[in-house]
């Protein structure tokens, strides 16, 4: 995971100034966002290659490129929809307990 424990345990964080702390927090947030984007790109490449490139030719032809663009949009939509469904389910489970 991205939170390497060494980040917080190697130095005494009580001695951080508040601006250093802010910087650290921003840094961690940014790293998380990058990791998330990378994961998305990896998944989309894999999924859209599978869907759109049936037989790899000498170059990406026009229809393949269009397919990939559309596939990417749909994957992002899928991600958002899945995210929403999951959050709703989490809320349901919390309400039940």
């Amino acid at each position: 995971m991205m939170f390497n424990d060494s980040l917080i345990s190697n130095s005494d964080t009580r001695s951080l100034s508040s601006s250093q702390k802010e910087e650290l927090i921003e840094n961690v947030k940014q790293q998380i966002a990058i990791a998330n984007a990378q994961e998305l790109i990896t998944k989309m490449s894999e999924k859209c290659f599978k869907k759109c490139i049936l037989k790899p030719g000498a170059s990406l032809d026009n229809s393949e490129q269009k397919c990939v663009a559309m596939c990417m949009d749909r994957y992002l939509e899928t991600w958002n929809l899945v995210s929403k469904s999951y959050q709703i389910r989490i809320q349901h489970e919390k309400d039940r307990n």
Binding site: M1, F3, I8, T13, L16, K21, L24, I25, I32, A35
Partner: peptide, 17 residues
């Protein structure tokens, strides 16, 4: 060992991740 505010932040971000 860890600043409470930082710890809280990391807990939340870890859960979010």
């Amino acid at each position: 060992e860890v600043d409470a505010e930082l710890q809280q932040f990391l807990l939340i971000e870890r859960e979010r991740a």
